[in-house]
Measured scan of single mutants.
Amino acid sequence: MTSCHIAEEHIQKVAIFGGTHGNELTGVFLVKHWLENGAEIQRTGLEVKPFITNPRAVKKCTRYIDCDLNRIFDLENLGKKMSEDLPYEVRRAQEINHLFGPKDSEDSYDIIFDLHNTTSNMGCTLILEDSRNNFLIQMFHYIKTSLAPLPCYVYLIEHPSLKYATTRSIAKYPVGIEVGPQPQGVLRADILDQMRKMIKHALDFIHHFNEGKEFPPCAIEVYKIIEKVDYPRDENGEIAAIIHPNLQDQDWKPLHPGDPMFLTLDGKTIPLGGDCTVYPVFVNEAAYYEKKEAFAKTTKLTLNAKSIRCCLH
Score class of each variant (00 low, 15 high):
residue 2 T to V: 07
residue 2 T to G: 12
residue 2 T to S: 15
residue 3 S to N: 12
residue 5 H to E: 07
residue 7 A to D: 13
residue 7 A to V: 07
residue 8 E to F: 12
residue 9 E to R: 14
residue 10 H to D: 13
residue 17 F to L: 07
residue 18 G to H: 00
residue 20 T to M: 03
residue 22 G to E: 12
residue 25 L to I: 14
residue 25 L to F: 15
residue 26 T to W: 01
residue 28 V to C: 13
residue 31 V to I: 12
residue 32 K to V: 04
residue 33 H to I: 04
residue 36 E to R: 08
residue 37 N to Q: 14
residue 39 A to M: 09
residue 42 Q to R: 13
residue 44 T to C: 12
residue 47 E to G: 12
residue 52 I to D: 01
residue 54 N to R: 04
residue 54 N to E: 04
residue 54 N to C: 04
residue 55 P to G: 07
residue 56 R to M: 07
residue 56 R to Q: 13
residue 58 V to H: 06
residue 58 V to C: 13
residue 60 K to H: 15
residue 61 C to M: 09
residue 64 Y to I: 06
residue 65 I to V: 07
residue 65 I to K: 06
residue 67 C to M: 14
residue 67 C to D: 11
residue 69 L to H: 06
residue 69 L to S: 06
residue 70 N to H: 12
residue 70 N to W: 05
residue 71 R to E: 09
residue 73 F to C: 10
residue 74 D to T: 10
residue 74 D to E: 14
residue 74 D to L: 06
residue 75 L to S: 14
residue 76 E to S: 15
residue 76 E to L: 11
residue 76 E to W: 13
residue 81 K to A: 09
residue 81 K to I: 13
residue 83 S to L: 11
residue 87 P to Y: 06
residue 89 E to I: 04
residue 90 V to C: 09
residue 92 R to A: 15
residue 93 A to E: 08
residue 93 A to Q: 08
residue 94 Q to L: 08
residue 96 I to L: 11
residue 98 H to T: 13
residue 101 G to D: 09
residue 101 G to L: 05
residue 102 P to L: 15
residue 105 S to H: 08
residue 105 S to R: 11
residue 107 D to C: 10
residue 108 S to L: 08
residue 109 Y to F: 07
residue 109 Y to M: 09
residue 110 D to V: 01
residue 110 D to Q: 14
residue 110 D to T: 04
residue 113 F to Q: 01
residue 113 F to S: 02
residue 113 F to T: 02
residue 117 N to C: 10
residue 117 N to V: 04
residue 118 T to G: 06
residue 118 T to V: 15
residue 122 M to D: 02
residue 122 M to R: 03
residue 123 G to A: 06
residue 123 G to W: 03
residue 123 G to T: 04
residue 123 G to D: 03
residue 124 C to V: 10
residue 125 T to Y: 04
residue 125 T to R: 00
residue 126 L to E: 00
residue 130 D to E: 06
residue 131 S to T: 15
residue 132 R to G: 15
residue 132 R to V: 07
residue 137 I to Y: 01
residue 138 Q to H: 08
residue 143 I to C: 01
residue 145 T to P: 00
residue 146 S to Y: 11
residue 146 S to V: 09
residue 146 S to Q: 11
residue 148 A to Q: 06
residue 152 C to P: 00
residue 152 C to W: 00
residue 153 Y to M: 12
residue 153 Y to N: 12
residue 155 Y to S: 07
residue 156 L to F: 11
residue 157 I to F: 10
residue 157 I to K: 11
residue 158 E to R: 04
residue 160 P to E: 10
residue 162 L to M: 07
residue 163 K to N: 10
residue 164 Y to G: 15
residue 164 Y to P: 09
residue 165 A to Q: 11
residue 165 A to Y: 13
residue 166 T to I: 11
residue 167 T to P: 14
residue 168 R to F: 09
residue 168 R to P: 10
residue 170 I to V: 14
residue 170 I to Y: 10
residue 174 P to V: 12
residue 175 V to A: 03
residue 177 I to Q: 00
residue 178 E to G: 14
residue 178 E to A: 12
residue 179 V to W: 01
residue 186 V to N: 05
residue 189 A to S: 11
residue 190 D to K: 04
residue 192 L to F: 08
residue 193 D to E: 09
residue 193 D to F: 06
residue 195 M to R: 00
residue 196 R to D: 03
residue 197 K to M: 13
residue 198 M to F: 03
residue 198 M to E: 00
residue 198 M to G: 05
residue 199 I to Q: 03
residue 200 K to I: 07
residue 201 H to G: 09
residue 201 H to K: 05
residue 202 A to M: 03
residue 202 A to H: 02
residue 203 L to Y: 01
residue 203 L to K: 01
residue 203 L to C: 02
residue 204 D to W: 00
residue 205 F to I: 01
residue 207 H to I: 08
residue 207 H to C: 14
residue 208 H to I: 13
residue 211 E to T: 12
residue 211 E to G: 15
residue 212 G to Q: 05
residue 213 K to H: 10
residue 213 K to R: 10
residue 218 C to H: 03
residue 218 C to L: 04
residue 219 A to M: 09
residue 219 A to K: 15
residue 219 A to E: 15
residue 220 I to R: 00
residue 222 V to M: 02
residue 222 V to K: 01
residue 223 Y to V: 01
residue 223 Y to N: 07
residue 224 K to Q: 14
residue 225 I to D: 10
residue 226 I to H: 15
residue 226 I to L: 14
residue 230 D to Q: 09
residue 232 P to E: 03
residue 236 N to C: 15
residue 237 G to Y: 04
residue 237 G to K: 06
residue 244 H to E: 00
residue 244 H to N: 01
residue 245 P to Q: 05
residue 246 N to Q: 07
residue 246 N to H: 11
residue 248 Q to H: 02
residue 249 D to T: 02
residue 249 D to W: 01
residue 249 D to R: 03
residue 250 Q to G: 14
residue 251 D to P: 01
residue 252 W to F: 13
residue 252 W to S: 03
residue 255 L to M: 09
residue 257 P to K: 05
residue 258 G to D: 10
residue 261 M to Y: 00
residue 262 F to V: 00
residue 264 T to H: 08
residue 266 D to F: 04
residue 267 G to M: 08
residue 268 K to G: 09
residue 268 K to V: 07
residue 270 I to H: 05
residue 271 P to S: 14
residue 272 L to N: 12
residue 272 L to Y: 10
residue 274 G to Q: 05
residue 277 T to V: 15
residue 279 Y to D: 01
residue 282 F to I: 01
residue 283 V to P: 01
residue 284 N to L: 03
residue 285 E to C: 11
residue 285 E to N: 07
residue 286 A to M: 13
residue 290 E to N: 14
residue 290 E to D: 13
residue 292 K to F: 11
residue 292 K to G: 10
residue 294 A to Y: 02
residue 298 T to G: 07
residue 298 T to R: 01
residue 300 K to Y: 04
residue 301 L to F: 13
residue 302 T to S: 08
residue 302 T to H: 08
residue 303 L to M: 05
residue 305 A to D: 01
residue 305 A to N: 02
residue 306 K to G: 12
residue 307 S to G: 07
residue 307 S to Q: 06
residue 309 R to Q: 14
residue 310 C to R: 15
residue 312 L to K: 12
residue 312 L to Y: 12
